[in-house]
Amino acid sequence: MAEQKANKNTVLYDDDSQRLSLFIVIVNNGLASIYKNCFINECNCHYVLTLQGRGTATKEMYRMLGLTQVKKDIIIAITPKSNLNELFYRTREQFIVSKRTKGVAFSIDLTSIINLKAYKYFMYGIEEDKYGK
């Protein structure tokens, strides 16, 4: 009961179609814009973050994963869970283009989000804001 009361401050998820996920891609330095544009323009993502990082795996591991650089771009897309299949498909397509664009990708489900406005933006974007008041 106490937990239910606390949860009134956060968005409750009723089913999978209402969930948000993080879709995270790690690729070689300088390739973030390719993925970012693809996610925003073709995959119905409404917000994407990009960070810079440095890989620390062994050379053997890099060879195995098909990665060639130590400097990395990390792309984090906040997206509806229903979008994940499309995102994985598109990302796999980019990985296949060449060895240079290869990377790793994974997703994590969000457990809660504060502020309904933010949730609606990540979920529906500007076009479908009419669904919520």
């Binding site: 956060t10 993080l22 489900d109 969000l110 457990t111 809660s112 504060i114």
Partner: peptide, 27 residues
């Protein structure tokens, strides 16, 4: 403590403040 922390972040640095922040959690 998750919900309390999220609410505190939203109150102090949410979209209606200068920080214009959003916050969410993952397991």
């Amino acid at each position: 403590k998750r919900d309390r922390v999220l609410k505190a972040i939203n109150d102090n640095c949410g979209l209606d403040t200068a920080g214009h922040g959003v916050a969410f959690s993952i397991p």
